[in-house]
């Protein structure tokens, strides 16, 4: 059975008329990495909150359909039960700091104290996650005296230390500089390799191309595409739904507009694919001139 099943989900926020999500159905397997893309307001954040139980429990509103996570029906469960199965990290690193702890070490332990784990277990888990996320050197610092990238890694560690089966990430790098972004994605990479189920809402296509098993495209609250990154991210039609494709794809598209791109060949989506494709193109051109 799939680890996450969403069946015919339609959701409307309170005090609004239009549904934010419409008839969403998808199954996510254990260990899968699903990327969610879409323009601003397409429903990415709403989907993340739905997967992590904050919809309907925190935001209320009207929910139809069913979400099952490890067999737990989220609409009919308590939020505190859901958060033991699904971890959520989101955009603003500053607001994810609990605010009640004076060191990073204590900050990461916060969730485990709430879960009532014994002190030894808390210590061993915190030390494990500090090593996994590569922030051992921050352990005794104040969580507020960190850079955005470091704070976001602390936020990730604070969630991961609770060992959620499913990790939901809502644009975790959108407020970070390039260095912070790279650091956070390095953590996500090692998580993906360790077999963690990850759902990532993101608009940095280069990173999605590298990690994602599947890409889901939302537009106005509906699923408009679902497929492998190679299928989805090379699709130039996505530009019309307000999604910024990677520069590799866009360069290839330009080349195609000038009728220089080989017919029927898929656009590249990553640096590696672009190198190969343009390399072939250039060598063919060199060949034809001879």
């Amino acid at each position: 059975m799939a680890q996450v099943t969403i069946n015919n989900l339609t959701y409307t926020y309170p005090l609004t008329e239009e549904p934010a999500l419409r008839e969403i159905s998808i199954e996510i397997q254990a260990g899968e990495f699903l990327a969610v893309i879409g323009a601003n307001g397409a429903g990415k954040t709403t989907l993340c909150y739905t997967l992590s139980g904050f919809i309907p429990h925190f935001f209320r509103g009207e929910l139809q359909g069913k979400i099952l996570i490890d067999g737990l029906d989220t609409a009919n469960s308590k939020l505190y039960e859901i958060v033991e199965k699904v971890g959520l990290a989101f955009q603003n690193p500053f607001n994810q700091i609990s605010g009640s702890k004076f060191t990073v070490y204590e900050e990461i332990a916060f969730g485990l104290e709430n879960l009532g784990l014994p002190r030894d277990e808390i210590r061993s888990r915190v030390e494990w996650i500090l090593a996994l996320t590569g922030i051992e050197d921050l352990a005794e610092r104040s969580p507020y005296a960190l850079s955005g990238g470091q704070q976001q890694k602390v936020a990730l560690a604070s969630i991961l230390v609770m060992k959620p089966g499913v990790l939901v990430l809502d644009e975790p790098t959108s407020q970070l500089d390039p260095i912070g972004t790279r650091e956070v994605f390095q953590v996500i990479r090692s998580l993906a390799h360790s077999g963690q189920t990850i759902i990532l809402a993101e608009h940095k296509m280069e990173w999605i191309a590298e990690f994602a098993d599947r890409v889901l495209v939302l537009d106005k609250g509906e699923i408009v595409r679902l497929g492998t990154p190679q299928q989805v991210l090379s699709d130039i039609n996505l530009l019309s739904s307000g999604i910024g494709l990677s520069r590799y794809t866009r360069v290839a598209h330009r080349v195609n507009q000038q009728k220089l791109w080989p017919k029927g060949q898929r656009y590249p989506i990553s640096l590696q694919e672009a190198t190969e494709a343009f390399g072939r193109l250039l060598s063919q051109e060199g060949g034809s001139k001879k």
């Binding site: 904050f54 505190y80 958060v83 603003n92 500053f94 609990s98 204590e106 969730g111 009532g116």
Partner: peptide, 25 residues
Amino acid sequence: DVEERAIAIEARAFNSPRQKTSLVE
């Protein structure tokens, strides 16, 4: 900021009915 911080601490089991423990002795 209150709204996001509330979400963040709920995501970390702030409302769990379990008996809380403490790291510091």
